[in-house]
Design a binder for these strands. Structure first.
Lengths: 205, 205
DNA sequence: GTAAAACTTGCAGATCGTGCAAACTTGCGA
DNA sequence: TCGCAAGTTTGCACGATCTGCAAGTTTTAC
């Protein structure tokens, strides 16, 4: 065997297994409907025991639902270290950060679409997805708070994070229904619409 | 017995039972932690059988989590029937509608606080609450779409609903932590902050 | 090459949630 | 007042989710 290149063999194997379970869960749920599929079936399809399934996901819902991937530490550090600025500037910076992250670690479009569609029919899946978004939003709020000075649950950081992630979600949702390669233009468009909405001069476009 | 005043005796009884179960669930969850409490305990505390519990709530989560109350038909009709207007005006109208609704059917503050606090420690409760908010948001988006012409999932209606409900949620969250009687000023303040955030001249206050 | 650490698995068991059918309650007209 | 129709509660049986524990297996580190 060669030396572990950048990451332990164990860690890599773990990520692969997790992804295999996720894909199996997603595929089976689309084929048969979320509640006709048992953990036993998913585990079998992924080649692990049911007990192992629960080592990777706390619930069946979580195996299907998708959340945003973690922000890389470098981007986070760079953002937090930037000069102080008024909230609207920070919001603009944040939007750029999220778009960069999205461009660097783009989710798989069809997979995302599948999750969105499943979550429309199955409240459990929707709930699991929303909970992950909420957790991500709280992380982002914390990041903003570090830049502005304050706590993640303060009004301004919380609202900045909420606005930014509303645009991201909306953009991803639209993108999933297209054939486009990149989600970025869709997210940027949502952000612009949001600006326009809260601006007096706006009328339809 | 007097004649049923406005509502059937049966329907009233049903609402009462549902509320008793909810309150029992909330109280027990706060006392012992959400996952130390069983459906059996909740049912016993509410004076019904476990089987009846599931006639009122589909899951244990749902018995604890709170969502926004339905919009009354009259407010909805009034809003939908109003003259066409540009999206930013519709957003302002919508904000007024939600505030009116809130003033007329104010939630119980301490109860709301209890749910918020529980949802911080228990992802299941958070997920159930978010799912209800999402359903409400979709209703609101549909309402906006009827006013603007279009579908609830179109970009502009979806974003208008998202922005308005972000302000409502944030305002309710802040209000729950105060001793104030009315949530309305808190929601209005969140809405103003949101406007300011997306406006170039804004800097800290 | 060996021992610690991490991972997988089976098993037992508590709890959740559902379908069904038998009681029971309420509303309402004869 | 009586009794029927519709709605409600309940018990029972059952499948599925999820957890703790301990034994076996693989990877890593020295």
């Amino acid at each position: 065997m060669s030396a572990p290149s950048g990451e332990s063999l164990r860690g890599r194997r773990r990520r692969e297994t997790k992804r295999e379970i996720h894909l199996a869960a997603l595929r089976l749920a689309r084929e048969h409907g979320f509640d006709k599929v048992t953990v036993e079936m998913i585990s079998a399809a992924a080649g692990v025991s049911p007990r192992t399934f629960f080592n990777y996901f706390p619930t069946k819902d979580a195996a299907v639902a998708q959340g945003p991937p973690d922000l890389p530490d470098e981007l986070v550090a760079e953002f937090a270290a930037a000069a102080a600025a008024p909230p609207n500037v920070v919001l603009a910076d944040l939007a750029r950060l999220l778009v960069r992250h999205l461009a660097e670690a783009p989710p798989h479009r069809e997979e995302l679409l599948a999750v969105f569609e499943l979550s429309r029919e199955h409240p459990q899946v929707l709930a699991a997805m929303l909970a992950r978004f909420e957790a991500f939003q709280l992380e982002v709020a914390d990041l903003v708070a570090r830049r502005l000075g304050g706590q993640a649950r303060d009004e301004v950081p919380a609202l900045i994070a909420a606005v930014a992630l509303t645009a991201v979600r909306q953009g991803m949702d639209r993108w999933a229904r297209t054939e486009d390669d990149s989600p970025v233009p869709h997210v940027e468009r949502s952000m612009e619409l949001l600006h326009a909405l809260l601006t007096p001069e706006f009328s339809h476009d």
